[in-house]
Nucleic acid binder design. Sequence first.
DNA 1: CACTAGATTTTCT
DNA 2: GAAAATCTAGTGG
Length: 203
Amino acid sequence: MRERGILPRGFYVRDTVEVAEDLLGKILVRTKGRSRMIGRIVEVEAYKGQGEDPASHAFRGLTRRNAPMFAEAGHAYVYFTYGNHYCLNATTERVGTAGAVLIRALQPLKGLEMMRKLRPVDSDLNLASGPGKLTKSLGIDTRLNEVDLTKPGPLFIKDTEMRGFLVGRSGRVGIGELGADRLWRFYVEGNPYVSRKSSVKRA
DNA sequence: CACTAGATTTTCT
DNA sequence: GAAAATCTAGTGG
């Protein structure tokens, strides 16, 4: 059976910051064995390319780890960090131009039992409200690196009719001072599944 | 509630 | 050998 509403390649072959904002509200689908886990993307961050974004893995050019950021848009970029966490990105821009959107938080919609199994928590609010939590609860690791997000498979992203929410904006989380002035974190205003509520970043 | 420190291993310099 | 796009537990107010 064909999947309907999957975001096409063209959605991702655009400016990274635009793609990031537009990914809010979209539906992430993770199939694992017989189970299917679904969540609404409620928080993202944009990371740009070589020489233009000091906070980006791609800032100093192509390396083994960041290769997916330079490759075709619409694929997963999964990396391991802090000795115990995986982070999930969607790649952007044209081939040769690096870019990726870090998916930071999900509002779980379906397959919650499986998610709780993968990441036991006391409250569902705590299930996928952070980049490391999200990958843990969906069973995502580097085996899913470079998976095509525009085709039905273990991991893909669908469009949604959900609109009308307010978009919040702030500096990115967890980076140092470099690039902190760029307000490239976007989130669904007021959504309880966003990783940090009082995102104080005023000008 | 706010803040600090430790865990733990891959990747790059 | 150092740092890392994080998380949790622990301390103190």
